[in-house]
Amino acid sequence: MPTALITGITGQDGLYLAELLLGKGYEVHGLIRGQNNPRTELVEKLVPDVTLHTGDLLDISSLMRALRKSQPDEVYNLGAISFVAYSWENAAVTSDVTGKGVLSMLEAVRLHAGDDLSSVRFYQASSSEMFGKVQQVPQTEETLLWPRSPYGVAKVFGHYMTINYRESYGMHASSGILFNHESPRRGPEFVTRKISQAVARISLGMQKDLSLGNLDARRDWGFAGDYVEAMWLMLQQDEADDYVIGTGETHSIREFLDLAFRHIGIDDWSSYVKQDPRFMRPAEVDLLISDPAKAKEKLGWEPKVSFQQLVTMMVESDIEAARAGW
């Protein structure tokens, strides 16, 4: 039975990945930060067979302790401060956790593995936000990185540090450059979930409108449940490498709104949506679209859930939650 350790297990990716690995017969361990973590209960409810350990990406001794207790064959480093808007308000903390936290985890794995570095395979959650002011359309593994937020900069640090450990120490360390991926488990602070929750509440007469920032920003949106399979596939390869993971399609916030409101029978949503300058980014990322050809060729990976199916799934889930009073 293979064993995996997942940092960031309380997030949508961590939950879907834990379910995937448990279904494949893995023994799964998760790292939880802090006492009385409010999302611990969610992990215990959705994936009760996961063994949880307390640790912090900024405390290498706690990471070493978690590695010693779990003895993983695979480590998935998903832990980060991942809300882009927050990163401008707390750039230093974001840099420490999202950037230096990767270094801490890599070093902990290196020290834990000792002379047998091939015994532990490492996955780093890189991000399409690293492309920022895009220099090539669509974006591939070779596209120049030009991040436009403290979050993106921190992700670039972690991405290159992963490459450096792979090249310096021969670690089986891979990075997945994941484009935007959403689900009903997405945090309510993210724009897609903010829309799906608001649309659900509007359909039930519980909310009148919602406020958003740039409606013309375009993203390559996929389903998080599909993307965690790509993470697993990367660590099953003989050679570690970096892969762009996305749908190869781009859609605007307006298109997301179109589908979400249309699902509840509203064709013209203009009276329900207000633009608020408070939600505008200081430096916008206007267009992200992936070229996942390498992942398709080498991993045999392709997304299964379409953009329309994703939006419908999220709105339906939030309608059910609102009716249940969650």
Rank of each mutant, 00 (worst) to 15 (best):
T7Q: 01
Q12K: 14
G14K: 10
L17G: 04
L17Y: 03
K24Q: 10
N37V: 06
E41Y: 06
L46N: 11
D49C: 01
L63V: 07
A66R: 11
E74R: 13
Y76N: 14
F83P: 02
V93K: 14
S95F: 13
K100R: 13
S104F: 00
S104K: 02
D116R: 15
S119T: 09
V120R: 01
Q124H: 15
M130Y: 09
Q135P: 00
P138K: 04
T140V: 00
E141G: 02
P150Y: 06
G152D: 11
V153I: 15
H159C: 08
R166K: 09
Y169P: 04
H172V: 04
S174M: 06
S175Y: 00
G176S: 10
E182H: 10
V199E: 10
I202M: 11
Q207K: 15
D209C: 05
S211Q: 12
L212V: 14
W221C: 09
D226N: 12
M231W: 10
Q236R: 12
A240M: 06
T247Q: 07
E249M: 04
E255K: 07
I266W: 02
K274W: 00
D276G: 04
S290I: 05
D291T: 04
E297G: 01
G300D: 04
Q309G: 13
M313C: 10
A321E: 07
A322S: 15
R323S: 07
A324V: 04
G325Q: 01
